[in-house]
């Protein structure tokens, strides 16, 4: 399979990438690790006139601390995320979920930011970003802006990143003592996409749950927060998890496809949410 012809620009900096995107607008695509864009190009499902490669932009790489946040450059590969002690210490959910992404080859090419900006609802990391309350730093011709997770995923394969903008980095609040986490990924073979995934972080204090954030993978055109479950969990003890998880499919609209029909996905969401929250609350 061979892509249609396109121009290629290797951006040396965020500013350069933004400038080219500003000039070419809708005709341009940003290339990160290429694990989604390249298949789309090869299958001729996408026809950009120019591909702007941000893979060599230094400031978009790596994990660093910034006070109560971790900052992960958009071009940090999945493998680098998995290997990061900072991520494991402060955002263990991300380490756990990233280990389930595809296969080793993809994890060494694919990037954290690319996966989020592609915004495939079947991808693992968008739901994780929701559960972690991530903030997205986006650069455009007018400078940089920060978008909260709840406002980032707009629609199927659409985010708050404009055609002339680049996702530069993602800020994750550190999770301290008392937080537990679990990513429950349901898929048929190791390297396949999630049929449904549940990303949960739970904070316990004095035996009961006082905070829970739950992201759902593949339960609609965008990743979703299971808000009804989160509310039902607030103040509950572990015996209330089962009842709370029954709300996991509320307000979801999953696809019916080869992975499963919508009713099956909604059933899975309830079962997996119960399991994810139970594990997170026990941890």
């Amino acid at each position: 399979m061979i892509p249609a012809a396109f121009d290629y620009v290797r951006a040396g900096s965020v500013d350069e990438a933004v400038r080219v995107l500003g000039e070419r607008g809708e005709d341009a695509k940003v290339l990160a690790g290429g694990q989604s864009l390249i298949p789309l190009l090869r299958l001729r499902l996408s026809y950009p006139e120019v591909v702007v490669d941000v893979g060599r932009v230094e400031e978009m790489h790596g994990v660093r601390e910034d006070g109560e946040h971790l900052v992960i450059g958009a071009m940090t590969t999945h493998a680098e995320v998995i290997d990061s002690d900072l991520v494991r210490t402060h955002c263990g959910l991300l380490s756990e979920a990233t280990e389930t992404v595809a296969d080793p080859a993809v994890r060494h090419r694919g990037t954290f930011g690319g996966s989020l900006a592609h915004a495939d609802p079947a991808g693992d990391l968008p739901a994780v970003a929701l559960a972690l309350d991530a903030e997205f730093v986006i650069a455009g011709s007018g400078g940089r802006r920060t978008v909260p997770a709840q406002g980032f995923f707009v629609d199927y394969l659409q985010t708050a990143v404009g055609a002339d903008e680049v996702l530069v980095e993602v800020r994750l609040p550190k999770l301290g003592a008392g937080w537990g986490h679990r990513y429950e990924k349901f898929h048929r073979v190791a390297q396949s996409w999630a049929i449904v995934g549940v990303a949960a972080v739970v904070h316990r204090s004095n035996g009961s749950i006082d905070q829970a954030r739950i992201g759902l993978t593949n339960m609609g055109p965008t990743p979703l927060r299971a808000s009804a479950v989160e509310q039902a969990l607030s103040g509950a003890d572990v015996s209330g998890i089962g009842a709370a998880a029954e709300h996991a499919a509320d307000d979801t609209s999953p696809a019916s496809d080869l992975g499963g029909a919508a009713d099956y996905r909604q059933h899975l969401a309830r079962v997996l949410t119960r399991r994810a929250v139970s594990a997170a609350a026990g941890g």
């Binding site: 809708e26 695509k29 940003v30 290339l31 990160a32 690790g33 290429g34 694990q35 989604s36 864009l37 789309l40 001729r44 499902l45 996408s46 026809y47 941000v54 958009a74 930011g113 690319g114 996966s115 900006a117 592609h118 915004a119 199927y156 394969l157 659409q158 985010t159 708050a160 990143v161 404009g162 055609a163 903008e165 680049v166 996702l167």
Partner: peptide, 10 residues
């Protein structure tokens, strides 16, 4: 029937 979207970085 190409899939087109904006703002992608993939």
């Amino acid at each position: 029937d190409g899939i087109e979207k904006t703002g992608g970085q993939a």
